[in-house]
């Protein structure tokens, strides 16, 4: 790290020996800016997916549904029996039988708003909210089977797990994208640095003639490329953060509308230019040393 800060703050004269213009300058700045822009989006994606996974996992883990599909005349009695059993079950905080209006609202997306729920054999649903360590689903199922044979307990495990897994994988993909972006940037900066070194063979020859060590020459190129990458990445990160901030926020429960940063996460794009500088420094240093070793 001391070497990196030295490269940024150190011998400005060393950087002056590298001609200031050339396509490699713009290539490095543009690459760093584009990669930083993408990295900010990957960060936002990763954080959003993480929040979603946590929220889904938390919300679904704390609820369960009891479905009672009894013959028409027994629905009320079995519902009452089920509610009584649930009240006695450790780990159950609250229970609530869904009203006709709520069941109608659940089915409205498929059957429309005027569904005559009371005339259809639609099961009664009871929403269960858990507390503490939650209830023992296996024990509850056995008791319900004995006393409320029409009751089916759904603790949401079946469809909660793939949802949470998907969100977790999305989060991992976000981090993988950031790593790939870093790798791609390192490759681009390496190519640019090698091109610059090749284009400046005459400069290197002059510097060696007057007694410059290879470390001095490498430092000159490294400083130049690190500063270019830092500047480009700062621009790209600022643009990316602005673009994320401009995303619509209405209905923030949805995944796409929740894409972005929350709280202290807004500070994380600040790390992108610093990381870009580290990547550029390491890539240029390696490329310069390798190239100089090959030049006689």
């Amino acid at each position: 790290m001391r070497r990196l800060t030295g490269a940024l703050t150190g011998d400005g004269q060393a950087a002056r020996v590298v001609p200031p213009t050339g396509f490699t300058a713009w290539l490095t700045v543009f690459t760093a800016a584009a990669m930083a822009f993408l990295a900010v989006f990957a960060l936002a994606l990763s954080f959003s997916a993480g929040r979603l996974a946590d929220r889904w996992g938390e919300a679904l883990a704390r609820t369960a549904t009891l479905r009672i599909a009894a013959p028409e005349g027994q629905v009320a009695a079995q519902t009452e029996a089920a509610l009584r059993i649930l009240e006695q079950t450790p780990g159950v905080a609250a229970t609530r039988a869904l009203t006709d209006a709520e069941r109608r609202a659940l089915l409205a997306p498929w059957f429309g708003p005027d569904l005559p729920v009371e005339r259809l054999p639609i099961p009664q649903l009871i929403e269960i909210t858990e507390e503490g360590e939650g209830f023992d689903p296996q024990g509850l199922r056995l008791r319900l089977a004995a006393e409320v044979p029409a009751a089916v307990l759904d603790d949401h495990t079946r469809w909660r797990r793939p949802l949470v897994q998907a969100a977790d994988r999305l989060r991992a993909l976000g981090w993988a994208a950031i790593a790939l972006i870093g790798g791609a940037m390192a490759a681009m900066v390496t190519l640019a640095a090698q091109a610059a070194l090749a284009a400046n063979a005459q400069v290197i020859q002059v510097l060696r003639l007057v007694g410059a060590r290879d470390a001095y020459i490498a430092r000159a190129f490294t400083r130049r490329f690190t500063l270019r990458a830092l500047g480009g990445a700062a621009l790209g990160a600022a643009a990316g953060t602005g673009a994320v901030a401009a995303l619509p926020r209405e209905g923030a429960e949805g995944f796409l509308t929740a894409l972005g940063f929350a709280g202290v996460e807004w500070a994380t794009p600040l790390a992108v230019p610093a990381l870009a500088a580290v990547v550029a420094w390491a890539a240029t240093r390696t490329a310069a040393r390798r190239t100089l070793r090959g030049l006689d």
């Binding site: 002056r16 020996v17 001609p19 200031p20 005459q202 400069v203 020859q205 002059v206 060696r208 003639l209 007057v210 007694g211 410059a212 060590r213 290879d214 470390a215």
Partner: peptide, 28 residues
């Protein structure tokens, strides 16, 4: 290489084709 560089600092060379850094002024 570093040893050669150190030795060159004690040797002044006037090259046939001079060899300069064209983007820097003469004084530099």
């Amino acid at each position: 290489r570093d040893g050669v560089a150190q030795a060159r600092r004690r040797i002044g060379v006037v090259h046939q084709d001079c060899q300069f850094l064209d983007h820097l002024p003469v004084a530099e």
